[in-house]
């Protein structure tokens, strides 16, 4: 019993760590993007200020489903983050860091947010949800095919074991071992994080920030926390799957920072796709590349 309690406490610690890490790195990245645009940029802890300010405001609610969806979204994402291994040996629930849990639990968070947004009764929110789900349909399939290749090659779907597999001498990172798949994964990750050119579902100038249109105050603050933890999960997935996991926590933070910053820099020079362009984009090259990579790696056995 004490064991389980301790594990759950560790899990909550992991989730909290993820939140703090991602929020700080997001703040730093706002500075990085500002420098790309020849600006000075905000303080590195600006994201914390934003979130706590939102939590301190008096918000409005559109009924119980509006609140319930937010609680469900944040709660499930916290739960998901609790499973995330930080290094290849440190995680709260040893042996249960199954890849599919992350992919599907994130979907519950999305569902909670979508439910709450639709419950606000604003049509722009529903349009935003529609776009978010459509984008998800676009990026998820190529990404899953690449991950299928990795799972087939390593014979395990546990993130930490995939990480360890890459650390064994003679195996290179899957970003290098599966170069075509690696490119697909980077593109899919940009879609997952909603970075430009795939931020169609936020589109502040077009549909007034989409699903978030009716949120203010604590609900928006909780969704911000949820978003930060979601980003933490998604980027960590990439680190574990493609960048060889991490031997220790410092390496994890370094890899995490590099991935997130590069994505942000790429994103800062792009415009925005229309939603049907997003779908067409992902179902054209990334999907073909992912399938090619899977054929090459699984059937021909060509892995660098």
């Amino acid at each position: 019993m004490i064991d389980i309690l301790l594990m759950i406490l560790t899990g909550i610690g992991v989730a909290f760590f993820g939140f703090v890490l991602q929020t700080s790195i997001a703040g730093v990245n706002r500075k990085v993007v500002a420098r790309v645009q020849k600006r000075y940029g905000p303080k590195w802890y600006q994201e914390f200020l934003d979130i706590f300010k939102l939590l301190s405001k008096r918000s409005v609610t559109h009924g119980w489903i509006f609140d319930f969806g937010v609680i469900m979204a944040l709660g499930v994402i916290i739960g998901t983050a609790m499973f995330m291994p930080l290094t290849s040996s440190f995680m709260a629930f040893d042996g249960y860091d199954n890849f599919f849990i992350f992919v599907y639990l994130i979907a519950v968070g999305m569902l909670g947010m979508a439910m709450s947004a639709s419950g606000s009764g604003n049509p722009l929110a529903s349009i935003g949800v529609m776009r978010a789900l459509t984008t998800m349909l676009a990026y998820e399939v190529p990404f899953m095919i690449v991950v299928l290749t990795i799972i087939k090659l390593t014979g395990t779907s546990s993130l930490s074991e995939i990480g360890l597999f890459q650390q064994v001498a003679g195996n290179s990172w899957f970003l290098i071992a599966l170069p075509i798949g690696g490119i697909v994964a980077v593109m899919a990750l940009m879609g997952m994080l909603g970075k430009k050119p795939f931020e169609t579902y936020i589109a502040p100038a077009e549909i007034a920030s989409g699903p978030m249109v009716e949120y203010g105050g604590k609900q928006l603050g909780m969704l911000f926390i949820m978003h930060e933890i979601t980003v933490f999960i998604e980027v960590s997935l990439f680190v574990h799957l493609f960048l060889g996991g991490a031997e220790n926590i410092v390496l994890f933070i370094v890899k995490y920072f590099v991935v997130y910053t590069i994505l942000n820099i790429i994103s800062s020079v792009y415009g925005r796709f229309k939603i049907d362009q997003v779908v067409l984009f992902f179902y054209k090259w990334p999907l073909i590349m992912a399938i090619t990579q899977a054929f090459i790696a699984i059937y021909l056995g060509w892995v660098i």
């Binding site: 759950i8 939590l55 301190s56 008096r58 609680i71 709660g75 739960g79 609790m82 604590k218």
Partner: peptide, 17 residues
């Protein structure tokens, strides 16, 4: 774990204004 997460979120929610 799902339940624990939702509990935490609920506590955050209920503590705020």
């Amino acid at each position: 774990v799902f339940g624990v997460g939702v509990l935490i979120a609920f506590i955050i929610f209920i503590l705020l204004k």
